[in-house]
């Protein structure tokens, strides 16, 4: 959640190609890729989509968070392959048999297709994650008409977390000094959470109350408040938004058509 202020530095000409695409376009791109992967059930198409998402991610020189997210999901995808390969209800064609354990083609294909979809979603979202910053997103969202209150809420989440983590460290220290030790049983562990969570929640809510009063005093609720207009740094915003939204609608319609036609 660090904030390289790329947006404040230099003109469009000096910035990379990823920064002339606005955040909403990036999000819509991720959405469209995800929807595409859901419209097809062919593994080869899925692999192609993974490849496309991967290429976009690689040429934008971003990949760190993708690695993390993939790690996060790969174990689950692995167990999916095993469970579906063994027990998928449409399993018919035996693929391999390892020491009497039989893996079937249908289940493995089904799981592999779903695994690819997950990868498409992760990679496409990672492109958004690594090429935008919190402040860029919030500024842009306010520009395109999201209420400033919603933007404030989204922004504060990013600032509140480091503050809470610091508070938690201090509280844990204080309680350890009072004699809380590592607990053994699950019930003891859950009980040992309270001496830390209660002060933390109260401190966090106290700070929320202070912020709320400060906001009110500063006239945040005033109907006359106007949003700050900033220079536009993006290209072809409207075309991108409309085009990608249209694509999303078509894809959803298509998928619904396919599902619907099964029942007719």
């Amino acid at each position: 959640m660090n904030e390289p202020n790329s947006i404040l530095q230099g003109s469009v000409a000096h910035r990379g190609w990823t920064s002339v695409i606005d955040p909403v376009t990036k999000l819509l791109m991720a959405l469209d890729l995800a929807l595409l992967s859901f419209c097809f059930t062919n593994l080869l198409v899925e692999i192609a989509l993974v490849f496309v998402a991967l290429v976009i991610l690689l040429i934008s020189k971003a990949g760190k968070s993708a690695v993390h997210a993939i790690e996060f999901s790969s174990f689950l995808i692995f167990t999916m392959l095993i469970i579906q390969g063994l027990f998928y209800s449409h399993n018919q064609t035996l693929l391999v048999s390892v020491v009497g354990i039989r893996f079937y083609q249908e289940g493995l294909l089904y799981a592999a297709t779903m695994g690819c979809r997950i990868f498409v979603i992760i990679l496409a979202t990672s492109f958004f994650m690594t090429t935008t910053t919190v402040s860029e997103n919030s500024k842009y969202l306010e520009q395109v008409g999201l209420s400033y209150k919603a933007v404030y809420v989204l922004m504060s989440v990013c600032y509140i977390l480091p503050e809470m983590m610091a508070n938690m460290k201090k509280i844990q220290m204080a309680q350890r000094a009072r004699g809380i030790n590592q607990q053994k049983t699950i019930l003891e562990k859950i009980k040992s959470i309270l001496p830390v969570l209660v002060p933390l929640v109260i401190k966090t809510l106290d700070q929320s109350m202070e912020r709320s009063i400060a906001l009110r005093l500063r006239g945040f609720n005033s109907p006359h408040r106007v949003a700050l207009k900033s220079a536009n740094l993006y290209r072809h915003e409207m075309v991108n938004h409309r085009g990608l939204s249209l694509l999303a609608i078509i894809l959803i319609g298509w998928k619904l058509w396919i599902i619907g036609s099964k029942f007719i």
Binding site: S156, V157, V196, L200, T204, L205, Q207, S212, L215, N221
Partner: peptide
């Protein structure tokens, strides 16, 4: 309608979710 109190409560709630999960 989002009051200022709710507006500051929501980020706190999200933070508590995060910390509790980490715990």
């Amino acid at each position: 309608r989002l009051s200022t109190a709710t507006m500051t409560l929501i980020p706190a709630a999200v933070g508590i979710n995060y910390v509790a999960k980490a715990f």
